[in-house]
Design a protein around this nucleic acid. Sequence first.
DNA 1: AGCAATTATGTGCGCTGCGCACATAACGTC
DNA 2: GACGTTATGTGCGCAGCGCACATAATTGCT
Lengths: 172, 172
Amino acid sequence: MIERTANLLGVVGVMVADAIEQTARDVVRHAGETPAALVVIGYGFGPSNDRLRRILGLSHPGTVRLVDRLVRDNLVERRPDLKDRRSISLHLTPQGEQAREAFLKGRLAAIAQVIEPLSTAECEQLTGLLRKMLSSLDPSDEQRCYLCRLCDDRVCTNCPIPADFRADVASA
Amino acid sequence: MIERTANLLGVVGVMVADAIEQTARDVVRHAGETPAALVVIGYGFGPSNDRLRRILGLSHPGTVRLVDRLVRDNLVERRPDLKDRRSISLHLTPQGEQAREAFLKGRLAAIAQVIEPLSTAECEQLTGLLRKMLSSLDPSDEQRCYLCRLCDDRVCTNCPIPADFRADVASA
DNA sequence: AGCAATTATGTGCGCTGCGCACATAACGTC
DNA sequence: GACGTTATGTGCGCAGCGCACATAATTGCT
């Protein structure tokens, strides 16, 4: 019965998402895609407004206002893009780096609480199943970026769905 | 490394939650706790505003407005509570029943797509792991209700976290 | 070089979902 | 029958987001 499995995964999925959002509210004091923006900008490749927009799946004005919030909170700064004076380049402030670290750490801790009852062997089992689910997806590049928008790259080794914006990190 | 497992679960959890919310937007045309309200009211025990508020974890005014939306859309009706004339009793209209069915079906379908690459044996494995995670939780009754707020009771057999509001269904 | 089409950013405006403070009606208790 | 409690409903405002529009810089075409 795949339906029973799906139902349980639905409960756990929502539980995990709730825990992550709660962490975001506690640490970043913002909801929606704002914490994801913090994570993505934190990769340090200095994305433009439009690049960020595509990764987060937001409208253009929504992204502008999102960045406004982060700038107002001294978490992000807009730098001029020297190669294209229309564009801006988004970078984290030291406070932003700190907030990003705290959020990612809180995120992992919140999720770890859910898996805590599992034994080490069961964790390995679960890892295998999750990897299989993720690697079997056939999303476009943009969708992959969207999925990875909250991912903690420090612990994401051998990622089953490498988002292509990671490539920009190297070139930054 | 529990952290790598946690990170992957974070990605899948958000993916599942996103898929469920997308279904809600498509079918119910509302976001937030509105689809959950439809599911909970659909149990048919005629919850009061306050009962619903506690299950969904919303403020009282937020719940009133939520019900306003559902009433405006002809999905829910407020009936007088004969035993307590302060209270109201929330029930789905035929349209509401239909919307609830469509949402729950869409939810299962969306999640099933994520599990689809797994074999039958792997599904069983996953079910066991999910059940262990859920049954090991130590939430209060209210938290349990909150977790089950989107659950499809038609396929939830031998629930690891039985929400106590289910008991009201029998007495309704 | 010059001018149109494209691209990137920012602004007014409104919508949805939600919480706080407050008001009102019914219940229970003494 | 008066008072505290409980249940519902109402202004009001805020966060997050999208649409339509405006403006500036780049690209491409001739």
